[in-house]
Design a protein around this nucleic acid. Sequence first.
DNA 1: CTCACTTACGTAAACGTTTACGTAGAAACA
DNA 2: TGTTTCTACGTAAACGTTTACGTAAGTGAG
Lengths: 334, 334
Amino acid sequence: MVYTIKDVAKQARVSTATVSRILNNQPGYSEKTKAKVLQVIEELGYEPNAVARGLVKKRTHTIGVLFPSVSSLFSGKLLSGIESVTHAKESSVIVCHTQELGSKTMKYLHLLNEKRIDGLIFASEVLKGEYYDYIQKMGVPLVLLATESPEFQVPYVKVSDYQASYSAARYLIEKGHTKIGMISGGDDVIAGIPRIEGFKQALKDHALLPLNEENIFWGEDFGYKEGKKNFPFLLKRFPNMTALFCASDHLAMGAMSAAVEIGMKIPEDLSIIGYDNLPIAEMATPPLTTVEQPLEEMGKRAAAGLFRMLESGDKMRAEIMPHQIIERKTVKHL
Amino acid sequence: MVYTIKDVAKQARVSTATVSRILNNQPGYSEKTKAKVLQVIEELGYEPNAVARGLVKKRTHTIGVLFPSVSSLFSGKLLSGIESVTHAKESSVIVCHTQELGSKTMKYLHLLNEKRIDGLIFASEVLKGEYYDYIQKMGVPLVLLATESPEFQVPYVKVSDYQASYSAARYLIEKGHTKIGMISGGDDVIAGIPRIEGFKQALKDHALLPLNEENIFWGEDFGYKEGKKNFPFLLKRFPNMTALFCASDHLAMGAMSAAVEIGMKIPEDLSIIGYDNLPIAEMATPPLTTVEQPLEEMGKRAAAGLFRMLESGDKMRAEIMPHQIIERKTVKHL
DNA sequence: CTCACTTACGTAAACGTTTACGTAGAAACA
DNA sequence: TGTTTCTACGTAAACGTTTACGTAAGTGAG
């Protein structure tokens, strides 16, 4: 048997209004009735129905989070951050993994709209016009996480891919490297191009490389297999390379694996630096030097910003999170 | 402006009942009115309010999932499976990460109860009596995932830890090893003890080891650091070990790292087999041989079972999922 | 003692659906 | 033609809350 506010009211010989007031601690009752009502609540094990409450308050205390994939460490860390602040706000999060399929994304958006979520976090994927328009219609606050939108003005939380890549390259240069290669993860506007540009700029600023870009391999995605597959091609094009910047830790792991398979030693024969600082970076042999994105903190910030928008109504502004080089064992000082 | 069923009814000059019938395609209207209503819906961009619907139908099309941690690859894979079948059922999943804190778990349970979720998946943690009792009171179907309950009769989906560990040990034996060590991840009844017992039984069945268990190191948890920290202790106790079974891939990665740091070669000097087959296993250098748990499939099964219970009302029975040895490069044939 | 406030409630409408029940007209049948 | 059975709806209650509004009793000032 699950009880309602009416049962409580009846048992305590008061009206439902009074019970509701006590529950939401608003004024308008004596200490005596409060005690009585609380006692009845305790006895019955009554818990308010958030669905009914949501209906009248037009607030469900639920936010939606859209990820391309939910099973990667990357999403996991972001989600962990989001979830912890959301829970602290007495709310909960509905996760959706779109598998980067537009149709799935739209279907999720409709579902979330029907559920009348309070707000939305859109993570690590590009915000298409179709999505944006629909979210506008939904009328809920939106924040982008680990991505940004050149097209629409939407608050976001991310590190600067350009600057972080610049840092990675400069780090290698400071360690005495001059022949530096890069394996990129794609040509998307968010994480693809800026990382390449940051890398190139660092080399240029130190008057290092020719401009024909034979030292950059443009991959298809950011995965392990891609890194493993593409490393040999890059090496053939650029055989005297002494250091390599990979646009993700997964790519770096793949490249490292390919390198040791052909008998190279890391970091003696080749220095490698990754990007993300996923837990695997620490577990690699040797442990991977990489540039850290504070993923969990980013998730927290995004959620905190969303709740601020919800509560105060004013817009959140973009937050550029600091990145950081995590020095481990894959870069050799020449 | 967000429209309601009343707006649609008014515009289409019918009653809300008719609109509702059309929306839920129940009989009771002509093709002509249906067309008219659908047209109005289209024009207004009306979408039904799932909150109101949930209130009267007493079904929210939302399930809850409780994880100890949401940022591990392990949870990620499980969640991915759960999420995909849940979405196929037009439902959504609320994730909660308890951080293995009892107080947090109870708080989540209350939250989920207030939200009137339809069902609950409880993953990879032991189901305490307190939780079980409360969930019973909630009156929603429950399935355990990657865990089981010796105490209460609750359906679960998992591999047999005992058998999987037995297989791992037997695999090493078949490769000619006789001096086999193990690093365990704890002494809990679910994943700790059974893996140790399976391992011991395999050795016993092949008349291999003495019974004093100096070849087993009982760790505190299943993490990388624990593996790294404990490997040297085990090696000291059991110096002529040629093969090692670790109760998780993370432990194996840690042990591997510790081993190479003291100059050992894998698999020449020591063979290692892990447990889980997380993505990192493939990315390790050398790639880690391990026993696979089909995590994503397990997530799918658990969710599918939960929905079956919801729809048909009958109990789901426990499902033991098959495990499998994934042969990679960390085990040498003696 | 009267008047104005305040306190402590209760009443009932509203939130946006679904659905049991009722009914008018058409169709079918005898 | 009269009776019955469908079909195609409409009416209104119900789901479990919150909250605007009303009101009776108590309190304090003059």
